[in-house]
Simulated assay, not measured.
Amino acid sequence: MARILGYIATSLDGFIAAPGDNLEWLFRYDGMDLGEHDYGRFLRRIRTVVMGRGTYDFIAKDDGPWAYEQQRVIVVTSQPIADPKGALETRGDIDSLIAELRGLGDGDVWMLGGGRLQMAFIERGALDEIEIYVMPELIGGGTPLFPATGFQITPKLLSAQALDRGCVRLHYAFPPARSDGRPPDLRSVGP
């Protein structure tokens, strides 16, 4: 069964992008030494990348080559994608997608991009772990790490580590869905 993982950077004040989807604040950290947690190392162990339509549209605007040639890519959208930037598949139903992803046996799945899709997976007990890289920046507004949905849960902290240039890596595990397929109880994974 595939593990479904998050790997995301956030500002200290809890935003993944400044207004207008601006990432200049994050690009200042390009080349930062993350050691064993380096993005390239993480991506090599990923077989399937799942992203929402907003993330896909943001990535597709970049002039560079498609970064996910080595992975299967699934975009969650209700609209067709004309002339996709790279090889990809689309899905419209999150519950069916979760069942499909859980049936994979060829490697881990990465939930790429914003917190809305990650929150939809968390609410269904389908995000196993997340690595959050907190950057020492206050950007004052923008896209929040997670949208305010009213959902409450207490993930288990697996590790916290100070890295290069003031970045802190937080690694959490989430409780799985209940055996009846319903979301996890609003409880902790562990102490």
Score class of each variant (00 low, 15 high):
Arg3Ala: 14
Ala9Asp: 09
Leu12Ala: 13
Phe15Lys: 00
Phe15Leu: 01
Phe15Ser: 03
Gly20Tyr: 01
Leu23Cys: 09
Tyr29Val: 07
Tyr29His: 10
Asp33Ala: 08
Leu34Glu: 13
Leu34Phe: 13
Leu34Val: 08
Arg41Ala: 14
Leu43Arg: 10
Arg44Gly: 12
Arg44Val: 10
Arg45Phe: 01
Ile46Lys: 03
Arg47Trp: 04
Met51Gly: 04
Asp57Phe: 08
Lys61Glu: 15
Pro65Arg: 03
Ala67Phe: 13
Tyr68Cys: 13
Tyr68Val: 10
Ile74Phe: 08
Val75Pro: 03
Thr77Gly: 07
Ser78Lys: 15
Pro80Asp: 07
Ala82Lys: 06
Pro84Gly: 04
Arg91Ser: 15
Asp93Phe: 12
Asp93Arg: 06
Glu100Gln: 10
Arg102Phe: 12
Gly105Phe: 06
Gly105Pro: 05
Asp106Lys: 00
Val109Thr: 15
Val109Asn: 10
Met111Arg: 05
Leu112Ser: 09
Gly114Pro: 02
Gly114Tyr: 05
Ala120Ile: 05
Ile122Thr: 04
Arg124Trp: 06
Gly125Pro: 10
Gly125Glu: 12
Glu129Phe: 00
Ile130Val: 14
Ile132Pro: 02
Ile132Met: 07
Pro136Phe: 01
Leu138Asp: 01
Gly141Ile: 02
Gln152Lys: 14
Leu157Tyr: 03
Leu158Lys: 04
Ser159Pro: 04
Ser159Glu: 13
Ser159Gly: 12
Ala160Pro: 01
Gln161Ser: 14
Ala162Gln: 11
Ala162Ser: 13
Gly166Tyr: 00
Gly166Trp: 00
Cys167Gly: 11
Cys167Pro: 03
Val168Cys: 09
His171Asn: 00
Pro175Gly: 11
Pro176Phe: 07
Ala177Ser: 03
Ser179Lys: 13
Ser179Asn: 12
Asp180Gly: 13
Arg187Ala: 15
Arg187Ile: 08
